[in-house]
Design a binder for these strands. Sequence first.
DNA 1: AGTTTATTGACACCTGGTATCACTAGTGCT
DNA 2: AGCACTAGTGATACCAGGTGTCAATAAACT
Lengths: 154, 154
Amino acid sequence: MSHTHESTITHLTETEIEQRLKQHGYRLTGPRGAVVEAVLGHTRPFTAEQLVAELADGPEAIGRATVYRTLEVLASVDVLTRIVSPDGHPSYLSGAPGHRHHLLCELCGTTVTFTACPMTDLIAELASDTHFEIRDHTLEVFGICPACQQAGRV
Amino acid sequence: MSHTHESTITHLTETEIEQRLKQHGYRLTGPRGAVVEAVLGHTRPFTAEQLVAELADGPEAIGRATVYRTLEVLASVDVLTRIVSPDGHPSYLSGAPGHRHHLLCELCGTTVTFTACPMTDLIAELASDTHFEIRDHTLEVFGICPACQQAGRV
DNA sequence: AGTTTATTGACACCTGGTATCACTAGTGCT
DNA sequence: AGCACTAGTGATACCAGGTGTCAATAAACT
């Protein structure tokens, strides 16, 4: 059996998310609902601009600023995780952050979330060697998923 | 004794760097020399825009595009490493990449390079669990260095 | 010296994201 | 239900960081 503890992303429903927003003192508005719905429509990582585009077409025509603000809110409420790829482009994943890392397919975006973090020992060691107070780390893994390998998209 | 194998960054001289550029088929131009010199002046991480600003003042007035292009060239020739912080802002470190990771002070930029990478086992495990072909990973550590802690800048 | 080709830099442009601010609409109160 | 209060909205302008274009320039090779 594996030690990676792959985790299925806990899939929240729209109402659960809206509950959570309320609990944190956020209002439940039309535009916000539309953003939540759009976010739930994605199982793969998406960028803020993608969402802006989708929602600009939609019936409600949500503004750019609102989309960005809502993404921030959703991330702060643990409905979304924001990750940054090595080339510096941020994208969002639905699912709570917490201590989690991701394995992403560079071609199709398929994402596997895992909770095993090999950093604990290293961090302790670095801290005792350097006397840094360690606060954060990045760790994301990139590769090609089996489907893309088979499809010869490599 | 530590297992982190902290490494001093191999400091190349200007001529060594220019040798290396030549070996890779790049020409040795005035502006390029100026960028190299400016890069060597930094022991801490710096951004492309910082360098642009520095060099705009200088006697030679190097253009923005040239600075960006040269940084790319220097990174491709292993004179610089480009790292991206969790907030998505890229910066450059002088020193070859290779398999290296960094511990950066969030306040003053002091950087410790280490070669111990705890990823090897995890990668093998992830690969066998998911059948991804793993190609890349990010791993950078952030914290507060002892000097900044003492200075109470925390 | 002359030719070739990489390199330069001014400039316009682009993308992703943020600040402003008058307006709108949830929410709680009565 | 009506009202007041404040969070939230979105148009717009703006910003930073970075890229594409292209005529002019300068290495390098003969």
